[in-house]
Amino acid sequence: MEQVNQEDWLDKELREATPYIDDAGFTARVLQQLPPPRRSRDLLRAAILLGMTLLASVLAYVVSGGGRFVSVTIERLAALPALWVFLLALASSLVVAAVGATAAISRERLLRA
């Protein structure tokens, strides 16, 4: 019994030996040293990608003689049988759905982890 009392006494003292340490600016110092948030890096990346896409589109428009290929392609599509147009639209929507589902699953895995 005495042994039990002694262990209780020692455990209690050990638990109380370290009082709560005031933050005193510690958290702020840690946060100051963190790398910039990913969101700002992502915004910069998105702006660069958008700029490059616009530039490439303008370039393609000029090089292709004022975008004549667009009207030619639309004419060709219009000449296709209705079944072919339906199949093309279905395939396109399946591809978009597959990409969306993959993105959703990977985000959900991150949340679960």
Partner: peptide, 24 residues
């Protein structure tokens, strides 16, 4: 989860605040 998904540094700050005393 917030830090992982949104790189939420405020959430990380809260984790630091909660555990700083024990770690220090």
């Amino acid at each position: 989860a917030r830090v992982l998904v949104d790189d939420d540094q405020h959430a990380f700050g809260e984790l630091v605040r909660r555990h700083q005393s024990a770690v220090r």
